[in-house]
Amino acid sequence: MRSYQELLEKANSLQLKISEIVILEEVQATGLARVQLLERMKQNYSVMQQSVEQGLRGEWKSYSGMVGGDAARLIEYGIKDKSLLGQRMNNLAAKAIAVAEVNAGMGKIVAAPTAGACGVLPAVLLTVQEVLGTSEEDMVMSLFAAAGIGMIIAERASVSGAEGGCQAEIGSASAMAAGAAVELAGGTPEQTAHAAAIALKNFLGMVCDPVAGLVEVPCIKRNAMGAIKAVTAAEMALSGIKSAIPLDEVIDTMASVGREMPCSLRETAQGGLAVTPTGQRIRDRYS
């Protein structure tokens, strides 16, 4: 899939949702049957559910020992104290952190699109499901919409932090989640694009600077922010707010910003937060 524009034209001419077009294209490209694709995506959906449950249930410690327990902390605070924006928002952030903590603790997750950004999609989609009471079938479909947006990003830019910085990982995840959330809420294919564009625009330039080279600091908390931005972008798009710059051009911008980013800020742990005095002390302790 080379552009969202292409996807949009097909969706409009066939009067189908973006997810349906993504499935049609995938059937054509792989020779797999629709039912096989749905079955495999259902596995992704159930692992996403399990990872949220696992992460919220216990206090996960990262394998390195550097971080952990923040999802539980956030949930407990949301129950005991008056959370600033209410429990829903608190839970959204907690779910994203929960999955990222499960990942850091060597638990099972779905890379979406990467392991480092694995918390964004489950947090956003499962929270929308709680609000809308979405069926499992529609949840699985929405993941195809997310994948479609991701495929265009992979084609025109990258979803790898080593190539494009964190904008390519959390930024991509946030754009995918925003688009999928719009489809779940019954928005149009145009609104799906606006949501993804608005989300991605708000990550342009974000560097990948993992302390000690581990997928922990600042990655885990960035998952929470990716989820929050995705939902905000989806709300804006559903209200009729448009992204002035179309999604394809935002993706191209992400690619060019990534190319201009120095190597030290692309997952090498040689720049950004990784080389702060504290970052270096942590590195000496944990790696």
Binding site: R40, M106, A111, G150, V159
Partner: peptide, 17 residues
Amino acid sequence: MKNSRVFDLLGPIMVGP
């Protein structure tokens, strides 16, 4: 990653990190 497919973007199911 050119010509990626759906499950390159959502997947693999894996143990982290």
